[in-house]
Design a protein around this nucleic acid. Structure first.
Length: 612
DNA sequence: AGCGGTTGTCATGAA
DNA sequence: GCTTCATGACAACCG
């Protein structure tokens, strides 16, 4: 972190007063002075003395200057802040800024050398031209933080701001570059490329050089390694640090004051990049940036025709347009092909079926549901037949897969179709995986996902059956729709008995398949959980066994110690004759109150005998 | 060819 | 009575 020494300069009283006025505007915006204590604390001990001395003098002059400046401001009744009186709205911007600047120069009585403007004047110009910038930059805490706490001090920002700006690295680190707003960043760059402003800044730099004696390159290029001393790049930190220093309430207040302006976070995060300082400034870009509502109007003017012109219909159609991709992509030709070539064969060759869905002679009599297949023209296909189709490259399988979902478009079910997510996932996959099956079950490069292949293959059977019976719904729809929707869907289409039975079987099988998957998943989870519990119980058992071993050992040891103590007590006890008691004849017994009695064992046994 | 794992399907019972 | 869900059992498939 490069720390830049504060140059010892003395600001003019006018500058101080102007800054103090701006600070007062911050107060109006809700920004407290303590917000800027970061810089203030660093200089407080140096400035306190001088501040007291200059207090009275400053106040007097400040009042005068404040009156002069307030003459240029008007009070915003909504925000309570002073907003510079804007120039005539229809007036060209350049003219407005010039007029405003001249007004400021005239009223505030800035000392101007010829055509050059001081930095403060430029800031004032910005304030007059762009209230938003004024609120965030001119009255920003950065400037105040650097100046307001210490008027007339050696660290005070004087006529030349760069010294104060060089102090900014002491402020919190700038925001990350990605948080900057490109538009505002460009706007700042363009703004800073204003000849007036650059002249002003160069003049400020000259002043700084004169006062500090430090070399500051006047023709600093963006590539200049010393460009960090250049005042302009520091403005970047002014802008970026503003966001760091400004309190949220200030920002909120500001946003409320300028709801139409660019988002404040963008503004507060904008940075300036030195390489773009010489970016050509154009009034259009200036206006575009400073009056974003105009930009918005332009944008909406551009986008609306896209969305509402000819595209309006398309947009409106999009949600309603069925995403029935399989049906849309598969034209009638595959169906025709299938109908011509394969279906008759299958019908004649495949009387068998793995489920009651299939239509075959034997099924008709075995099941009432199956017997309802009156229309034999739809045919039934056994799993083996489907397997043949799956494994027969170039056979009807490809046509099946291509024409799946049929060419029939359910009018009333476009939206559900478009909503179904799995369908979209599966359909593209379908086209990819089917060719694998078509290759005669030859080992595809990636056959590890056999579940998927199998699932697709199995699913394709129902799909093929549905296609064969010209079911106007996708299998996913049939399976996943809620009962009500499913019934509604069924009621909207007149299906024959075979189709109804097939749809019911597809739904039953599909749900059962999912249920089986969930069941197995649950079973595996239970097994895993039981294994985990078993391991935990084993660990617990080992732990308890270890604890028991320890407790047994401890108990044994305590018993030994008690026995030793017991014998020791007997060894010390003596009767009237001075003879020791025998542990065999006496025993020590302790009552509940802690009293220890010497009880003859014989007597004890006698008592026991008496009791018994 | 046999084996084990995976998956789909059916039958059955419960909710 | 119908639907859905859960689960055991079976078969097919695959490595």
């Amino acid at each position: 972190m490069m720390e830049i020494e504060m140059p010892k300069i003395h600001p003019s009283q006018q500058d101080i007063d102007l800054i103090d006025i701006l600070w007062r505007q911050d107060i109006d915006l809700g920004a407290g002075r303590e917000v800027f204590d970061y810089c203030q604390r660093q200089k407080e001990h140096e400035l306190q003395q001088q501040r007291e001395q200059e207090e009275d003098k400053r106040l007097q002059q400040q009042k005068e200057q404040e009156k002069a400046l307030l003459a240029q401001l008007q009070l915003d009744e909504e925000t309570g802040e002073f907003v510079p009186r804007l120039a005539t709205s229809g007036q060209p911007l350049q003219t407005a800024t010039s007029a405003a600047s001249s007004q400021v120069i005239q009223d505030v009585s800035f000392t101007v050398d010829g055509d050059a403007m001081s930095f403060d004047e430029c800031m004032q110009l910005l304030a007059e031209t762009f209230p938003l910038v004024e609120a965030t930059e001119t009255t920003s805490s950065c400037l105040d933080a650097a100046v307001a706490p210490a008027p007339n001090s050696s660290h005070i920002m004087m006529k030349s701001d760069p010294p104060a700006l060089t102090q900014l690295p002491l402020l919190p680190a700038p925001l990350p570059p990605q948080r900057t707003s490109p538009d505002l960043e460009q706007a700042w760059m363009e703004l800073l490329s204003l000849p007036e402003l650059q002249q002003c800044l160069n003049m400020e730099m000259e002043d700084t050089r004169e006062q500090t004696g430090r070399y500051l390159p006047t023709n600093t290029t963006p590539e200049d390694p010393n460009y960090s001393f250049y005042p302009l790049p520091n403005l970047e930190e002014v802008a970026s640090n503003t966001a760091d220093v400004c309190p949220p309430e200030f920002i909120n207040t500001f946003e409320e004051s300028f709801p139409n302006m660019a988002p404040l976070d963008h503004l507060s995060q904008m940075t300036l990049k030195a390489p773009d300082l010489n970016t050509h400034f154009s009034a259009d870009t200036f206006c575009d940036v400073f009056y974003p509502d105009v930009v918005n109007t332009k944008v909406t003017g551009v986008t609306l025709p896209c969305g509402q012109g000819n595209g309006g219909n398309s947009l409106a159609e999009i949600p309603n347009k069925p995403t029935f991709r399989p049906m849309e992509l598969q034209d009638l030709s595959p169906v025709d092909t299938f109908d011509r070539d394969n279906k008759p064969e299958i019908m004649t060759e495949c009387p068998d079926s793995d489920s009651g869905v299939s239509v075959e002679a034997s099924s008709y009599s075995s099941s009432p549901e199956k017997s309802m297949y009156g229309d034999r023209s739809f045919g039934g296909y056994s799993d083996s037949d489907m397997d043949e189709m799956d494994s027969n490259p170039g056979s009807a399988q490809s046509d099946y897969s291509e024409m799946f979902s049929l060419s029939f478009q359910p009018d009333g079910l476009q939206t559900p179709l478009s909503v179904l997510p799995q369908q979209r996932d599966k359909e593209p996959k379908h086209g990819k995986t089917e060719p694998d099956d078509e290759t005669g079950h030859s080992e595809p490069p990636f056959t590890k996902d056999k579940k998927r292949r199998r699932s697709e293959k199995r699913l394709s059977r129902d799909e093929q059956r549905a296609k064969a019976l010209q079911i106007p719904f996708t299998v996913d729809m049939i399976i996943e729709l809620p009962v009500d929707d499913f019934n509604e869907m069924m009621s909207k289409h007149q299906l024959n008995e075979a189709q109804l039975a097939l749809v019911r079987d597809i739904r039953r099988r599909g749900k059962n398949k999912v249920a089986a998957q969930n069941c197995r998943k649950r079973k595996m989870e239970n097994i895993t959980e039981l294994e985990y519990d078993l391991d935990s119980l084993k660990e617990e058992k080992e732990r308890l066994q270890t604890e028991k071993t320890k407790n047994d050992s401890s108990l044994r040891k305590m018993k030994q110690q008690l026995n030793t103590l017991y014998l020791e007590v007997f060894r010390l006890l003596r009767d009237e004759d001075g003879k020791p008691y025998s542990p065999l004849e006496y025993s020590l017994q302790q009552t509940t109150d802690g009293t220890v009695f010497l009880v003859p064992r014989i007597k004890k046994t006698l008592i026991k005998k008496k009791d018994s």
